[in-house]
Nucleic acid binder design. Structure first.
Lengths: 68, 68
DNA sequence: TCATAAAGTAAAAAACATTTTACATTTGAA
DNA sequence: TTCAAATGTAAAATGTTTTTTACTTTATGA
């Protein structure tokens, strides 16, 4: 799964730590997510969608491998 | 978190079991999700979005309690 | 350059999603 | 009304996300 978190975070001029506070997770969760190390929960996606004012489908996109 | 899975599934005339096969999870996962027993992963949300051709933000919506 | 903020990394533990098996309840059509 | 399909439920096991602590590396401004 790809994501555009880093781009959107930069657009708002937020650090990973800033964003972590806003969506109420740890800074490492934001870091790992940006690096594609795992797929977050839908609740977290919706919170990011809310903060960025961008649809979830524009924040996260399925890749080939995600369907196996 | 609220969801409109049941409505969208009915729209396509699929059973929980049918949908489970399409998004590659167990029937119980679909059932529990429809009943709001837990929040699925973003990958699963995106797969449902794809099958239903409906944005994730229209399938799942945050509620008051989700921000604490 | 040097100090500091920001980002990246790691490992263990906690919390939560998902599977599996199995059974109970509801619904709808014959 | 009856049978089967669909849905709901539960508990244990497994896999994955998230937290926490702590350290390393990179970028940036004074």
């Amino acid at each position: 799964m790809k994501n555009t978190i880093k781009i959107n975070r930069a657009r708002l001029g937020l650090t990973q730590a800033d964003l972590a506070v806003k969506v109420q997770v740890s800074r490492q969760t934001i870091n790992a997510m940006e690096l594609g190390k795992y797929a977050p929960s839908t609740i977290l996606s919706l919170k990011l969608s809310d903060i960025f004012d961008v649809p979830v489908n524009e924040l996260f996109m399925l890749e080939e491998g995600d369907w196996q």
